[in-house]
Amino acid sequence: MSPTQQEISAEIAAQAAPTSGTAHPERRYPPYRSSLLRHPRQPLVPADDLKDPDAVELSGPVFGVTDVTELDADLTRQHHGEPLGERITVTGRVLDRDGRPVRGQLVEIWQANASGRYAHQRDQHSAPLDPNFTGVGRCLTDDQGRYRFTTVKPGAYPWRNHTNAWRPAHIHFSLFGTAFAQRLVTQMYFPGDPLFAYDPILRSVTDDAARQRLVAAYDHELSVPEWSLGYRWDVVLDGPAATWTEEGR
């Protein structure tokens, strides 16, 4: 039988204390049921202190103007008509742990439409599809590490982790650093969402301050009069940076 929200919330509360020194979720997080058979039980082999400068994970894939078109960063212009929903701009910087900008690197996003439905065959949520919105974007960071997307605010949507499970509105982000070891896939949330407390995926980040780093800030300066609302969200990539590639780029 599917657990109730009350049961899941009790599990979330029981897991609330950070269980490790890292910001990242433990891969075993029982309130998120799908994690149970999909996490390793053996300890990971440490590779953060490799003496081997030839480890290929210290360099990483590169992307360029051939891989992205100008229109890819505007998710509201990929069809003939305007998508439904609240038009927003999402921008920020991609940095490494030392605060250095990640330049010219690929940022990919995907999201549900304003009604909370993905343009994915397996998404059977009864909310309507929007013929004018696919929900996929990509861009390259600029010299300051900045990315920028125009899109619509995604809706919350139900899922089947437990009875009455709803995901807070979020945009999925995929980011590359200068090293493969800095790879990150994560989700950006919107400030003040009432669903935060109930969501085992967000709550899998058990450290309050770390969880806060997944929430964008509303930035009135970024809002464009009579056009769009602005959100700002910076991303800091974990893992060793590839210093040697930086000169080569």
């Binding site: 979720p25 995929s174 994560t186 301050a209 780093r213």
Partner: peptide, 18 residues
């Protein structure tokens, strides 16, 4: 600087990443 936490790729990346 403190890193941005990871979150699952979820079930619906199929029309975005491949």
């Amino acid at each position: 600087m403190l890193p941005t936490p990871s979150q699952t790729v979820g079930p619906f990346y199929g029309y975005a990443l491949p």
